[in-house]
Amino acid sequence: MPTSVHQLDDGAWLSVNDTRQINVSDLWWLARHDFCSCEMADFLAEGFVDIGVDYPNIEGRIAGQCIECGESGVTDWLTLGRVVDPEAGRFFGVDPGSVHVPVRRRRLALPDE
């Protein structure tokens, strides 16, 4: 079955196959990023802005700010988790507290997002 992903409630959370998976308000460590000048951005997720699928990854751009330097804005694309088997539909989320590397847009977001 196709994997359904979207943000809801004003970007409060990422939904995968209509199940709430990742909330705002977590801190994400970002490395090799250009979000701010910090070597490692200590990024507070305040809202999911774009959500997309690049099989098997679920990706998103998140609005928020680095709590180290105060820079705010929207991240490049971050891997938020994976749906390895679309038939089963089970989502494996990443751990926000581990280190993440945002990447620039490689393809269009889902047309309906």
Partner: peptide, 10 residues
């Protein structure tokens, strides 16, 4: 706030 709300951080 976080007692009930999805968006709140605190």
């Amino acid at each position: 706030g976080t007692e009930f709300c999805s968006l709140s951080i605190v």
